[in-house]
Amino acid sequence: MFSLNNQLELRKIAISSLITCIYLPSIVTVISYKGLLYSLGNGSTFYVLLLIYIAELLKSFYLNSNVVSKKIKSKMQARDVINSGIFLLGVTFCFFVGMILFGAPMLDSHEETLMISALLTLLTVFPLVAHAGVESAMQLLFGVKHFSRDTIIEMLVNNALLTVCGAWLGAVVIPLDWNTPWQKWPIPCYLGAIGGHLFSNVLTILKISLMSAAEKNPVLNFVVSVLNKFNLSK
């Protein structure tokens, strides 16, 4: 559970999660409405990734608006941007190679694999890099440095983990004999990643709502205490 001492951070996290819960389903709904769901893997749906990039960038600006001082803002120079771009490209390449190693088609569908690699990078690593910088993101990725009660980073890491889990579990539906068009690679993993990301954000909103309501309700307060005891908030 998040600590209650920082109401400002909690409100930012709540609004950020709400924005995610609004724009991602909107994108998916528009895609489904337009009948583009089955071409999500193609390069023609690159604008979807662009929309997600812009949304995540705006969210990052919002999350950093009051907390970050002017000094850190001036540090966001071109050199840092180039380093972030290189690092994100490297992460995309790692996702690409990892997906091929774990079962994606090897000789063809490279465009589709690249699309989902880019999506996973945008949903998992890009918010961390945009929020905390390249060095901190690398340290967080490898578990060297624990996020010491930084609720925003905790939320971003949870989002990343559940996004990867969603993409991983999306692969479960590929071998089933439903014969639906959206069982083609990489659409189930693409939607699974988006679903995992949404799920994480919904969990965040639920946790914050529960904590807010627990202050007024003794029964919910007891539930929150029990959850804290069992360490389920982690």
Binding site: G103, W168, P175, D177
Partner: peptide
């Protein structure tokens, strides 16, 4: 209990194996 998982049992094992290796 699903016929797909009998015919495509190897997919289950490949998924488990990939998860383990991951």
């Amino acid at each position: 209990f699903g016929t797909s998982f009998i015919e495509e049992e190897h997919m289950t094992w490949y998924f488990y194996w990939n998860t383990l290796m991951f």
